[in-house]
Amino acid sequence: MTTMTRMTRMTRIEEAGRGVRQVIGTVGGQNLILALAIVAVAALFGTIDPGYLALSNIRVIGDAVTIVGLLAVVQTVVIICGALDISVGSATGVASVVSAMTFMATGRDPLLGMGTALGAGLLLGLVNGVIIVYGRVNPVIATLATLSAYRGLAQLLSGGAAQGYVLGDDLFIFVSRGSVLAIPTMVWILVAVALAVHVLLKYTDIGRNLYAIGGNDTAARLAGIDINKYLIAVYALSGIVAALAGIILTARIGSGHPTSGSVALELKAITAAALGGCALKGGKGGVGGTLLAVVLLGALENGLTFHGISTFWQNVAQGALLVIAVVIQQRRSGERPVGLPT
């Protein structure tokens, strides 16, 4: 082999290496890992039972991840801002009840039912924001309190029982069972919300300010950013998206229910955001990674259910994934582990 040939091969290898690094830089190392994990999960369960990869089951996964996906996307915004919203699952339950009860009380008007639910979600989000900003309460404590309060509110409004029946209405049927271009309506709703949030975070001053607040709130305040206004707005957005998830939940179940389908949604949303690369201290994260994590969790949960694994073990797996995500973040940050010597 001549020297020229060796140099040519080394040049090609270097170019290939640069190409790989560019792809990783564009996609993101964490996103690439999540994508590979999705492929691995699909390959594993598909090998065990080819029915797992059937189009009908893929559609089931798509339907199942929609509600969690919506909450995870808006949780990403909250976490980037350096906060947390543990009440989103309960807010979803309130919106579900309100949408169905208003639908029945207004002569089966779906637009009034959905509009009232979105208004209720906005109000619940504003309450969270006001408590945190003006009550000067830690976001975790504040939303932990409203988690319980909103769940109780949903039960009070409904008497603890399912309310109404919406599957006789064309609009609710379209939301729960319709499709556009062979893709379920619910998935389109998730894509639309995720795309809007992505544009907000990446291409607007609002998004840059949210990252600044989460990265260093003192510097953001000195730069003239009204942190209180942004926090209240972020929680209002969280409430609206939680209400949208509640409307979809009502359409899927067929009635408004205070707890069914909304319990533990907040944990799933936080897990997806953390797995997707959101730093729980704020200032880092994105919608793309969150959506990949949502798909991974949905594929894993569906695969375990598909093969008859107990939901108890699914909960164990979900909790373990959250711990793993936080440990990885801690190691990458380079900070000294709490309670251990340097």
Rank of each mutant, 00 (worst) to 15 (best):
L200R: 03
V323L: 15
V287T: 07
R9Q: 15
V27L: 10
A42N: 07
G289Y: 00
T185Q: 08
V77C: 04
T47M: 11
L153P: 00
K229E: 09
I253M: 03
L53C: 15
D49G: 06
R331G: 10
A162E: 05
G319Q: 04
L70C: 04
I67E: 08
A192W: 12
Q330V: 07
L275E: 01
P258K: 02
L300C: 01
V338Y: 15
L265F: 05
A91I: 14
G286D: 08
A91R: 03
Q155D: 15
L171Y: 12
G129E: 07
Y230S: 07
E335L: 15
I253D: 02
A43R: 05
L111V: 13
A194L: 04
T5K: 15
V60Q: 03
F172C: 01
G334Q: 10
I227C: 06
I324R: 11
M186D: 13
D226C: 06
L144W: 05
V68P: 00
P184H: 11
S310T: 13
V88G: 01
V327Q: 11
M7P: 09
G215E: 04
T143D: 05
V74Y: 05
L291D: 01
L275Y: 04
A154W: 02
L153H: 04
T290E: 12
T8F: 15
V338D: 11
L126G: 03
V166G: 09
L190M: 01
L296E: 00
P258W: 07
G308T: 10
G119P: 02
S179F: 10
T2Y: 08
Y235E: 00
G159V: 06
I132V: 14
G164K: 06
E14P: 09
L340C: 08
G135N: 12
L190P: 00
L267C: 07
A120L: 07
S96D: 04
F172R: 02
A37E: 06
V77W: 00
T92P: 00
L195N: 01
N128P: 02
G334C: 11
Q163P: 06
G93C: 09
W188T: 01
G152M: 08
Y134F: 12
I141L: 12
S148R: 04
I173R: 13
D217K: 06
R331Q: 07
I48Q: 01
P110M: 13
V27E: 05
Y235V: 02
I38V: 09
V88H: 01
Q155T: 10
I173D: 02
A269W: 11
T116R: 09
A37G: 10
G239P: 00
G28A: 10
G160F: 13
V287Q: 00
C81V: 13
R9D: 11
V316T: 10
I270A: 06
T146V: 06
A40C: 08
L171C: 11
G246T: 01
G129K: 00
V294H: 00
Y230H: 09
S56A: 15
I61L: 09
V193Y: 06
G319R: 05
W313L: 14
T66N: 02
Q163C: 14
L157P: 08
A54N: 14
T218H: 05
L126Y: 07
R252C: 08
L122I: 05
F103Y: 11
A54Q: 14
N128E: 06
L55M: 14
F174H: 05
R332E: 11
A142C: 06
H198P: 12
R336W: 12
A196E: 01
A35Q: 05
Y211I: 12
L153E: 00
G288F: 10
V74L: 08
L237T: 07
